[in-house]
């Protein structure tokens, strides 16, 4: 059932987020303790800087990303079907109408951005518009609407605050441990050295672990958006067929960059296969399988 799939994914991202928060606080505490002898100091330091950076990207990130891929806002006269499909879905989802952008790129992809529903934007590659029929386009736009409805940009911002805390503290620690370490050798005994070694190990390993949790969360939100899209359109097969077409086209994107990758509906094809653990999106075959399952249980 669609409802079960939605509940399951929501519970999963909630648990992952709790886990991530606990992990971040522990890591920052240890690095803080090893770095200048105060665990809480480390947490507050990391949190403040990371929060400022994430807030800045929350408020200007959408414009930066849209212009980085060369997206252009399009009118109803230019793309009547795209506007119609979007308006139909505002009725189905009860959300305000997002601004619509088209990206001059022949690889088939789409993404949504904007910090809240009132400021939401949906961008679609020309390549995707060319290959999809109306029903499939509806599925894709519904997937983007779901990201807006599930506040995924906000969610990603919270996650990036946590990730940022770990990355900032680790980086500062790795760059400065030489002299903090030496002064510590003189001041304290064995306990100081153990804390220092734990801190150093964390500073090297924690950013990688944190990145992996962030990716797991990103994949989870994709499943959630697929399920919500099925609920909005009551037609999981539209999106499933669109995903099949997207995965079938091996056109290398000209505009993609690392900032926009997690936002896309499907992981951009870069000419090589990605291992599951390191991808921002779940395998497309599994997404299609889940959507088809929703379709058969519904009927």
């Amino acid at each position: 059932m669609v409802y079960d799939e939605i509940t399951r994914n929501r519970r999963r991202s909630f648990l992952l987020l709790i886990l991530f928060s606990v992990f971040t606080i522990l890591v920052c505490y240890f690095i803080g303790a090893a770095w200048f002898g105060s665990g809480w100091g480390g947490i507050i330091f990391g949190f403040t800087i990371s929060l400022i950076m994430s807030l800045v990207s929350l408020y200007i990130g959408d414009k930066v990303i849209l212009s980085s891929v060369g997206a252009r806002e399009v009118s109803r006269e230019e793309y009547p079907v795209l506007h119609n499909v979007t308006e139909e879905l505002t009725i189905a989802s009860g959300l305000p109408k997002p601004k619509i952008y088209v990206v001059p790129d022949s690889s088939p992809n789409a993404f949504a951005t904007g910090r809240n529903p009132e400021n939401s934007k949906i961008a679609i590659n020309e390549g995707l518009l060319k290959v999809l029929n109306r029903e499939e386009l509806q599925g894709v736009i519904a997937h983007e609407f779901s990201h807006i409805k599930n506040s995924d940009i906000m969610f990603a911002t919270v996650v990036s605050v946590l990730l940022g805390m770990i990355i900032i503290l680790s980086m500062v620690f790795r760059r400065t441990f030489w002299w903090t370490g030496r002064s510590r050798d003189r001041d304290e005994g064995g306990a100081g050295i153990i804390i220092f070694i734990v801190g150093l190990t964390l500073a090297i390993l924690a950013p990688i672990a944190a990145k992996l949790i962030q990716l797991a969360l990103s994949r989870n939100r994709e499943y959630l958006a697929d399920a919500s899209a099925a609920l909005i359109t009551r037609n999981p097969l539209g999106l499933a067929n669109a995903l099949r077409k997207i995965s079938g086209t091996k056109v290398i994107s000209k505009t993609v960059n690392d900032a926009v990758t997690p936002l896309y509906i499907a992981e951009p094809f870069k000419g090589l296969d990605f291992k599951t653990l390191f991808s921002t999106h779940p395998p497309i075959e599994e997404r299609i399988r889940r959507l088809e399952e929703m379709a058969y249980i519904n009927k």
Binding site: E87, E88, L89, A92, G94, Q138
Partner: peptide
Amino acid sequence: NRIAFSRQF
């Protein structure tokens, strides 16, 4: 579609 979706909503 709008009719169908407004009923669904």
